[in-house]
């Protein structure tokens, strides 16, 4: 069933430059979505609209069929969504366990262990963990909360390929096993390929791509770069 729905959403910076021109889409629980697009196309704006950090210029965003502008943005942020950032954004004076406990009443250690942290690592100073481990903590924090929607902004942007793959797998698992709706904003095709639904934001409009479309655009890009090299 649809947990989030975007209806005719338009967004303009200061009423001038239109970045989003009437977007319509639905998102379901248990699925992972990837939003692709070049830098500055409005990906992050779309994510912040979904997360209730900002309101669209026109159109509606529905959570479980209700307009989040009516039920309250702050309430939406607090109870329905959780963010994951490229730079992890953990609270540096809290241990991984405490970071997870920030917004959750669940015991944090099982969640962290599930994500591959040892009990010792779960009590370490977060700044002394590797990037991948920090991002795991951030994901654990998001999973532990009651939020049904996880919004991730370039979650693998700071990580090496192997770690990125691991994190992607975790996010995917979160959608499939924990039944969360995971929305990832990224420019990485590798990550996007793993998503159940791939959306591309181009010139303010959203298109659904299939994996083959993705490979096609990738090979087009390759050809274009080869042409340029010649």
């Amino acid at each position: 069933m649809n947990i989030m729905e975007i209806q005719n959403v338009q967004y303009a910076y200061d009423g001038k430059k239109k970045v989003l021109k009437g977007i319509n889409t639905q998102m379901e629980q248990g699925k992972m979505y990837a939003i692709l697009g070049p830098s500055g196309c409005g990906k992050t704006t779309l994510l912040s609209l979904l997360g209730g950090l900002d309101s669209p210029t026109s159109g509606q965003i529905l959570y479980q069929g209700e307009d989040i502008a009516k039920t309250g943005l702050a309430d939406h942020r607090r109870s329905h969504v959780a963010f994951i950032f490229q730079s992890y954004n953990l609270i540096d004076y809290l241990t991984p366990m405490e970071n997870v406990a920030l917004t959750s009443k669940l015991p944090p250690l099982p969640i962290l262990e599930q994500l591959g942290l040892t009990a010792e690592e779960a009590k370490r100073n977060v700044l002394k963990l590797s990037g991948g481990q920090q991002q795991r903590v951030a994901i654990a924090r998001a999973l532990a909360s009651d939020a049904q929607v996880i919004l991730a902004d370039e979650p693998t942007g700071n990580l090496d390929e192997d770690t990125a793959a691991e994190i992607t797998a975790i996010l995917k698992e979160s959608a499939h096993k924990s039944g969360k709706c995971v929305v990832i904003v990224t420019h990485s095709n590798e990550l996007a390929k793993e998503a159940d639904v791939i959306l591309q934001l181009r010139r303010g409009e959203l298109q659904t791509l299939s994996v083959s479309d993705l490979e096609e655009t990738a090979s087009q890009k390759r050809r274009a770069s080869q042409k340029n090299q010649r």
Binding site: G51, R77, R78, N89, I91, T103
Partner: peptide, 13 residues
């Protein structure tokens, strides 16, 4: 400032 942002994003008022 950064820390505040994180808290706010987590929905802490």
């Amino acid at each position: 400032v950064h820390e505040t942002g994180v808290y706010l994003a987590m929905g802490i008022s």
